[in-house]
Design a binder for these strands. Structure first.
Length: 282
DNA sequence: GCCCAGGGAATCG
DNA sequence: CGATTCCATGGG
């Protein structure tokens, strides 16, 4: 017999609000207190968090093991990672604002397009654009719309894409889709590359620079050595590590990569979350 | 009206 | 080369 709900025992390294509201994914909706609806891999999943349990539905145990265990990175021990990072005073403070953050393993294509949309944009707007694209061009699924596949999105006109409020990024999205459907870039095959080679491939896409590539590598390829540097991270790092002295972006990035190594990605995410939750400026 | 946003491409000097 | 400008859109 199969049940339609999967129950996860909760610890301090899983908080659905921290996971979703830390700026790493955009295809979700808040329904209530610690109660969310997410869309990923052409499925809608409801998640309700209680004090000691997290309920996922509709979802069988098999489905949870097959899809969501990896999506939520449940085989990684975040308590252990946090213990290491807390040796740094700044990180100890940052972790306190998002103890339940986990780095998701999102769909490559959706993640890549989402972060192309993210450039010079704000999180609520990114969510809105992703939603527009899904509702207009994604296939209808139970309780929502999937994010469209490459073939479908590649056939959408620049004008129609702009109607989804992509703005100047529409041509970037189309270039990305084009390079994938022509197999100039194969997102599945990128999994086998080193982080350095993967970065080189992603940078071939118009509208994808180092920051967007790093986000894609971190949030959909499990590359924890990636350290995305955006305006928030730059400001926060300059403040906490350089006494408010201005530094170039690539300098901040090298500093982060060297300081945190394979924990760069998660360290960056605690810092980013800390910065946006405290509205850290200057 | 002005400023800025999980940046990057195009253009300038 | 590095530095500046432009890009759509919407919220503060």
């Amino acid at each position: 017999m199969t049940t339609n709900k999967y129950i996860l025992k909760k610890d301090s390294s899983f908080d659905i609000e921290h996971i979703l509201e830390c700026g790493q994914c955009f295809n979700f909706e808040k329904l209530g207190e610690k109660y969310y609806k997410i869309t990923a891999f052409a499925k809608v999943l409801y998640i309700k968090q209680y004090e000691k349990e997290v309920h996922f539905f509709p979802c069988t145990t098999e489905e949870f093991k097959k899809i969501w265990t990896h999506y939520f990175d449940l085989d990684t021990d975040y308590n252990e990672l946090k213990e290491i990072l807390r040796k740094d005073d700044v990180l100890r403070e940052a972790i306190a604002f998002g103890e339940g953050i986990r780095i998701l393993n999102q769909d490559h294509f959706e993640c890549l397009i989402s972060f192309i949309i993210s450039q010079n944009n704000r999180i609520p707007m990114i969510k809105s654009v992703v939603k527009n694209i899904s509702e207009n061009y994604g296939k209808k699924i139970i309780d929502g719309y999937a994010f469209p596949d490459v073939e479908t999105l590649s056939k959408v006109s620049d004008e129609d894409l702009r109607a989804c409020k992509t703005g100047f990024r529409s041509k970037y999205i189309l270039d990305c889709c084009n390079k994938i459907v022509t197999n100039e870039i194969n997102l599945k095959e990128l999994e086998e590359l080193s982080s350095e080679e993967m970065m080189k491939e992603l940078l071939k896409i118009k509208g994808v620079g180092v920051k967007v590539a790093n986000c894609t590598m971190l949030f959909s390829y499990g590359r924890g050595d990636s350290f995305p540097v955006d305006v928030w991270i730059k400001r926060a790092m300059e403040h906490f590590y350089f006494n408010d002295e201005e530094k170039p972006k690539d300098y901040i990035q090298s500093f982060g990569e060297e300081k945190f190594g394979d924990l760069s990605g998660i360290a960056q995410q605690y810092l980013f979350n800390y910065a946006i939750k405290t509205n850290f400026k200057k």
